[in-house]
Amino acid sequence: MELINRPRRLRKNSMIRDMVRETRLNIEDLIYPLFVVEGKGIKKEIPSLKGNYHFSVDMLIEEIKEIRELGIKSILLFGVPNNKDKFGSEGYSKDGVVQRALRTIKSKFNDIYVITDVCMCQYTDHGHCGIINDTGYVENDLTLEYLAKIAISHANAGADMISPSDMMDGRVGYIRKALDREGYTDVPIMSYSAKYSSSFYGPFRDAANSAPSFGDRKTYQMDSANSDEAMREVDLDIQEGADIVMVKPALSYLDIIRRVKDNRNIPIAAYSVSGEYSMIKMAVENGLLSEDVIYESTLSIKRAGANMIITYFAKELAAKIKE
């Protein structure tokens, strides 16, 4: 009976509960996704991602000032260009929206760590994550050349970390070699290693204007039924030089995060995606759940084994952590 009662005694006092708490969420764990668009004076709420906005570069700077005050120091930057083509050329343009945002951010802040998403879906006129061949399929190996162009252009503009999200085979190794050739040996890669073909991406595709105009992405994103495959994808990215591996989405794939944590010695990022955010946001706003669920759900991602969490709730979480 003594052993049975012992945990209950530790739970009775709030100070003791704090002392024996196993998992803690820190502001340093949070990465805030931001969407940058062409133009000036733009801060426009994304309807399906309430509380998140499209920012022009000038307004993005104001947002970064706000998150710095909350203690958030890491952002994941997505570009939404006006012009798109079959080669996604705005993605690697010197004057692309992400490249201009990077130069501006780095000229004004020396303590903001900027991670850039490297993909083609928001830059191509067809919305797929690579170059489409004559048969209507993504040309994997040709796509690698364009992904490397995007990565190098981001590094040139000041990106602190590159994060390829395309799920092409071999892209981590290809990008790593390209960065090294250009002298960016110290720019790390956070790879979307286990990125599932998920129904939770809808609001993001509105935000990035990146929904495919035909077909789907199941041929290059992972089947949600597969766990062993996730480990193979993680292993391949590690072998190719990934510094951090990512699991996406997060809340429906906590088992994958835990499995990677238990079996691989590498930092893990988890992306709590737009659909997860929107469900919780709507439930809180409609009084179905209390705001505490935001912290609780994010803590579960940390408890599962993630070292860093990409979340649209970063501002709310940082404010709560600072209380």
Rank of each mutant, 00 (worst) to 15 (best):
T124G: 05
G127E: 04
G127A: 01
C129R: 02
C129P: 10
I132W: 06
I132Y: 05
N133I: 06
N140S: 11
N140Y: 13
L142F: 09
L142T: 15
L142Y: 11
L144Y: 09
E145N: 15
E145G: 04
Y146H: 13
Y146D: 03
Y146I: 05
A148I: 09
K149S: 04
I150R: 06
I152R: 11
I152W: 10
S153P: 00
H154R: 03
G158P: 00
D160I: 01
M161C: 13
I162D: 02
I162G: 03
S163P: 01
S163T: 06
P164M: 06
D166W: 08
D166I: 05
R171P: 05
G173H: 09
Y174S: 12
Y174W: 11
R176H: 05
A178Y: 01
E182S: 09
G183Y: 11
G183F: 10
Y184H: 08
Y184K: 12
V187S: 03
V187L: 00
V187G: 04
P188W: 03
P188I: 03
S191E: 03
S191C: 13
S193N: 09
S193Q: 08
A194S: 15
K195L: 02
S197W: 14
S198D: 01
S199A: 15
S199P: 12
F200L: 15
F200T: 07
G202F: 06
G202P: 09
G202Q: 10
D206G: 02
A208I: 03
N209V: 04
P212G: 05
